[in-house]
Design a binder for these strands. Sequence first.
DNA 1: AAGCCAACCAACCGCCCCGGG
DNA 2: ACCCGGGGCGGTTGGTTGGCT
Length: 272
Amino acid sequence: MGRSPCCEKAHMNKGAWTKEEDQLLVDYIRKHGEGCWRSLPRAAGLQRCGKSCRLRWMNYLRPDLKRGNFAEEEDELIIKLHSLFGNKWSLIAGRLPGRTDNEIKNYWNTHIKRKLLSRGIDPNTHRSINGSTTPPPKTTKSSLQNDEPVRFEISGPDQQRIVKPEPMVLDREDANNKCTSSGTTSEKDIQTDDDWVLNLELSVGPATTKSYRYELTRKANPDLAESTRRWSFELLGAQAEVCLCCRIGFHNESCRNCRTSDVTTTWESKIL
DNA sequence: AAGCCAACCAACCGCCCCGGG
DNA sequence: ACCCGGGGCGGTTGGTTGGCT
């Protein structure tokens, strides 16, 4: 039995796309839009697998793609996002307008890995290879080990998940680093035992328009034994219309494209 | 000029997720 | 609740290019 192949491979072209094939695909999508990839090749007169058409369009022919070298800012952003998401290239690509997951993946493997290694940083763990260049995480009373990831899922009041991707995984060191640089709460608050604050920027709905900036606060719950490894979370959010530039961190004070509403909501979240 | 090698990147493969029936 | 198919994703491959000897 098994699964039927996505297409009749015997009659399909493989390998590099010709200009004629590109033109057929572009013309068809301009006229009809992106639809069912499985039936598209036949309709467009292409001897290609639907998946192949999708890939070619997504990675190469889409008009909104930015071609050319990566800027230094993009490098650093990729490194930061990789430290948060790992090899979730599509998530990373979602925050780099005009870049594709494939492009970022290739760039990571050919450039950034080496760049990090030359800095003495392990590209997989984002930690110092010899353990001397990055500061050690703060000592806390937490029962979490320093290298143990904190997994949490953020849900809205109606229990609808507002984080569509995998539950975010942050290591403790990363979270602590964010605490100290957030500036949204007092040093005193940050330093106390298990409390920390984490600034999140989440996207909901069409990735290009709306985003939500949240401040996630973890507070030690004195009612729970440490061994249960549970904390209460408060998620204070502000809904915002944020332009792409600002979303990827190149915020300009004079930006008129961003509008922030003063809606602040308390959300619940839980440790998984 | 030819051969070799490393780097780059487009494309493929196979698995997984999710929505619809 | 289960199955199926389409779409999406991450890992990998292999062809191309450019630099060096």
